[in-house]
Computed example of a mutant assay.
Amino acid sequence: MSSSTPAPQRPAEPSRAEEVAGLRPRYQADLAAGTDRFFEPRRTECPWCGSSSLRVRLRTIDLFQHKPGRFVLEACEECHHVFQNPRLSDEGLEFYYRDFYDGLGEKQLGGAFARRTKTYVGRAEPMKRFTGSPAMWLDVGTGHGHFCETARTVFPGTTFDGLDFTDGIEVAEREGRVTRGFRGSFTELAGEDLAGGYDVVSMYHYLEHSTNPREELRAAWKTVRPGGYLMIEVPDAESRLARWLGRWWLPWLQPQHLNFVPLANLRRELTALGFTVVAEQRAEPHDPVDLLGAVWLPLNRYAPAEDAPWHPEPPGRPALLLRRLLLLAGLPLLVLATVLDRVLVKPLAGRAGLANAYRVIARRD
């Protein structure tokens, strides 16, 4: 090619409006028969302990994407496990996850995850207390692999692999954030390529997405080598803020979060599997977003929805203008909530029962 020959131009990326228009026929076809098939039959017993003593903890809708559907969380009166009931079916999981972490949501959430470097360092550093430099680390539910990319600065000699069931894992491998990316079910892959191969397995905000947390823990036991470690971080539904804020407590994240395992239940299950719990943390994994979420979620709920393919037609200009005006009017409250989250709630999180997450580190015996 001569120097005067112009380089081939990359095709322009479609605008969001064009992407939404292209996706709308599929979504409308999915919704033509209603949302009933997106749910399994309602359970009459707790999926953790089998008790029939259940009570409704929360009724809500999709406060994030505004996809249609109504969701219920129930709590077991015996073991205090909180779970979605009725739970999403396989079709429902595919429908509600679609375009959240990938597709339409990939750029927005990918950027948000990439900026959480300090959080990722805080997740990796506790392992220094127990192992000098693990050779192999598997991050389950790694998404786009940003944790692995950051954790490599804490453990530069460690090989980080990732596993996820979305195409984010392919992005993570392509960008070099993980050495190997495994796409699929952890419970299925644990008995094959992954068995006994890792010094550390981490599950950061993964277990609550699982349809069967016990199976995931058994898969982790298979994957961690004897003497290796399992690190789990999940939302804490026992937080006082979860009770006070109700449906506006951001970590409920309906309809994606299916199970909220209390710390005592998780500790007993890990012990029964053959792990020794060596650390429990509440203050350290707390993410200062509760008050911010309690302002943002109502704003997003009551402002006119932005254009999305699961809506029958695009909103008109007046609706979009009203949305912008309402969000702009709420900006001072969002700023105030952010400040209060950091200067008021975070320092008290561990002592006052306000922490929105807990972390467990367990050694396989």
Rank of each mutant, 00 (worst) to 15 (best):
A75V: 14
R152S: 15
E125D: 02
K118V: 06
L63M: 12
R116W: 01
V154P: 00
Y101P: 00
G141S: 07
E78Y: 05
R129E: 15
L138D: 08
P126D: 05
E125C: 03
V140P: 09
R123S: 12
D90F: 01
T142M: 02
R87G: 14
G69E: 05
D90S: 08
M127D: 07
V154R: 06
E74Y: 04
E94D: 14
D90G: 03
G105W: 01
A114T: 00
E78K: 10
T142F: 01
K118I: 02
V82T: 15
R70L: 14
R70H: 15
T131I: 11
G110W: 00
V56I: 13
P86G: 02
L58M: 15
H66D: 13
H80W: 04
P86Q: 15
F95G: 04
G141M: 09
R152L: 12
G111I: 06
H144K: 09
M127Q: 10
E91Y: 09
K128C: 04
F83N: 08
L73E: 05
H146R: 13
T60L: 13
C79L: 10
E94S: 08
Q65T: 06
T60V: 14
F71R: 08
K107F: 05
G122Y: 02
T60Q: 00
V56E: 15
I61S: 12
G141E: 10
F130V: 12
F147V: 03
M127C: 04
R57K: 11
A112P: 00
R98D: 09
T119K: 02
V140G: 08
T117P: 04
Y97G: 00
G143P: 15
S52P: 03
E77M: 10
E91A: 14
G132H: 03
G103H: 13
G103V: 01
G122D: 06
R87N: 15
G110K: 00
A112T: 01
L109F: 07
V82R: 03
R87C: 15
A75D: 11
E77L: 07
G132Y: 11
D90I: 06
F83M: 15
L73Y: 12
F130M: 06
G111A: 09
E106W: 04
A151D: 00
L104P: 03
N85L: 02
T119N: 03
R115C: 00
G69W: 10
